[in-house]
């Protein structure tokens, strides 16, 4: 076969399109800069920015599973918030058992206690995810209406079970010694815990990116999001892949729950459904199914919520809705619309 018959040709992406690709990424620094101008005081700005990033990272952790699950199987889990709440309560119980470790002056013991709490929470919510997927979600694949209803029902039951196990009162979840207090940088006071949250969130995002780009299972997930049927035709069981992703997403929601609990220091059975509002906003902003979009959306929401909470506390939640509306006016499918073959 001659080389000329099939002249190698690669379509050049126009500059404008390339720019449009990168544009959403730029929104985060732009928002931070606007925040600096609006707030005026660099020290307060730094405090708020770190707080915003920390909040964004936690929302990202909780939202990432939801968005990938949607991308892969077209399933949206309105009960995702239940995993957040259960994670927080399991974390609470484990930290209470390890009270000796959390009160110890040793930073190492403190962090080990948190790590054990996180692992326990992830294990429980991961298994809960398994049960949820098999019992609640599987019978209604492909039926959006029933999915919304049934997963909402799952949320109600899960919240009620939290009441049964942990009682109806809100619980106080205190941070271990090492994570209390703030670091003072110049005039800015930055809570240590927020730095930890940013660290964990960033590590997770990078890890997730690595898995999606460089491992076979990551490739399968990305391919499955685009065309699940073709992945099946190549001999892979998408259902099983989906179950793994669903469990991972649930475990991540559990992780997010522990982190959110330590951040707010109080936990209630309803915390999941409250956070879900932010999670949904982030997922919509990012584009349903897109991990990168979800990350950027989470950062934007976190920063904006903290800036407005400082500048005009009453409109904090409204501002995130306004952001969502603005993004959707610009890109009706979110920042990074996911390519679907069908």
């Amino acid at each position: 076969m001659s080389e000329t018959a099939i002249k190698p040709r690669i379509e050049k992406i126009p500059l404008k399109e390339q720019l449009a690709q990168k544009l959403p990424v730029l929104l985060v620094p732009v928002l931070a800069a606007v925040g600096l101008i609006a707030i005026g005081n660099p020290a307060s700005w730094l405090t708020l920015t770190v707080a915003g990033l920390a909040m964004g990272m936690m929302i990202f952790i909780m939202a990432s599973g939801l968005t990938v699950v949607f991308g892969l199987m077209d399933v949206i889990n309105f009960g995702h918030g239940a995993f957040v709440a259960v994670g927080a309560f399991v974390g609470f119980t484990v930290l209470a058992w390890l009270a000796g470790w959390t009160a110890s002056p040793s930073v190492f013991m403190n962090l080990t206690a948190v790590l054990v709490a996180i692992l326990a929470a992830m294990l429980v919510t991961g298994l809960l995810g398994l049960a949820f997927e098999r019992v609640i979600v599987m019978p209604v694949y492909g039926e959006h209406l029933k999915q919304i209803l049934v997963t909402m029902g799952g949320l109600i039951v899960a919240q009620q079970m939290i009441y049964v196990v942990w009682g109806p009162d809100e619980l106080h979840m205190s941070r271990p010694e090492a994570l209390q207090g703030s670091l003072v940088i110049g005039e800015a006071a930055i809570e240590k815990y927020r730095l930890v949250a940013v660290g964990i969130g960033l590590a997770l995002f990078l890890g997730m990116r690595h898995i999606l780009k460089n491992t076979k299972i990551g490739l399968l997930v990305r391919a499955g999001v685009e065309n699940g049927e073709m992945v099946e035709a190549l001999g892979y069981r998408v259902r099983r892949l989906f179950l793994i992703v669903f469990m991972t997403g649930s475990a991540l929601a559990g992780l997010g729950g522990v982190m959110w609990g330590l951040y707010q220091e109080t936990i209630t059975a309803h915390m999941g459904s409250e956070i879900m509002v932010l999670v949904f906003i982030v997922v919509i902003i990012g584009g349903l199914g897109s991990v990168e979009g979800c990350f950027i959306g989470a950062m934007l929401v976190g920063l904006l919520a903290n800036y407005t909470a400082f500048l005009a506390p009453k409109v904090a939640l409204i501002s995130t809705i306004a952001l969502m509306v603005a993004v959707l006016m610009w890109r009706p499918q979110g920042l990074y619309p996911v390519v679907k073959a069908k």
């Binding site: 076979k216 990305r222 391919a223 065309n227």
Partner: peptide
């Protein structure tokens, strides 16, 4: 419709195709 995974590289498409 060819069923190409456009989000993946040519190499990645081939890696997935070699299921065994």
């Amino acid at each position: 419709d060819m069923g190409i995974f456009t989000d993946l590289t040519v190499a990645e498409n081939m890696i997935l195709a070699a299921a065994n």
